[in-house]
Amino acid sequence: MEWFNDHRKLFVAAFLFFAGLTILVAILPALSNEKISRPLPGAKPMSEDAIAGKHVFIANGCVACHTQQVRNVDMDKVWGKRPGIAADYALIRRTDLWRNTATLMGSERTGPDLTDVGNRQGSLEWNLTHLYNPRILVKESVMPAYPWMFEMKKEPAKGDVIVNIPPEFLNDAEKKVVAKKEALQLVAYLQSLKQTPLPDGTATPEFLYKRKVQEAAADGAAAELDGSALYATHCQACHQENGEGLAGAFPPLKGSSIVLADNVDLFVEIVMKGYSGRESEGFGVMPAVGDNAGLTAEEVTAIMNHERTSWGNSAKKITTEEVRKVIEFLQSNP
């Protein structure tokens, strides 16, 4: 073919071939997606603090390890109530003229997905402590520590947010750890990350590739769930593996009267709806872990029985029936 020997024709052809395909698989889909996607009616714009916090998140490259996408596969169920859809990202515009849109969907999950972290882990105390050094709360964590987002003050001013850091993580135990602006903004951003519910009547997209084991467990009552694994997923980050919590932030479950009580009504309610009854003692507010994660009665029972029988606790095991009754009562009386 003679035109192969004409550099103009050859390279123009190569260019047009590539450019044509680019238009088909990249430019047109991107444009059409921009055009048709609308934010969900329930989507709330972010607060000013949260926007500033998002900039802190971007600047520090947190996206390298944290995704923000719940895929429509069964294993992603732990990260949100439903798979993500295009509308979830419709509110995100270009950051500014200099910087591109930050959907922050990410491509690696070295740390947990953050799509719904505002619901899952919304506590200010937890987030600040965790930012100061993740290993205070999760000793196996490999996340970087961000002590430079905090300052050490001998006499904190009024309005300063003081974080309770265990002395072994401090150089100078005399001083107090005070959160700087960027730490507070970053936490505001994390707290704002909540999956927007779909409008009533909309069919929720399904999670694909369902796990067979789970179905089996649902029919056969004999299959008992692994309470310690569920505890690790939903409770351990605050109450710790040894059930002792963290002094001044998260109350111990070891020896707790609520955990050990014969009447489990309050216990179930706290697991499902959260708790703020011990704020005066300096403990943080507990989020509605059960509701947020959509825990079933079986799962709650497994968690509760783990807590009632571990770390020296020795209350009698409870049945799923008892728990189911309480959950149904809570659902009918919100």
Partner: peptide
Amino acid sequence: PTWQNGLGETII
């Protein structure tokens, strides 16, 4: 610098 809002960014 004037496009790629929403998921458009991800496709690109």
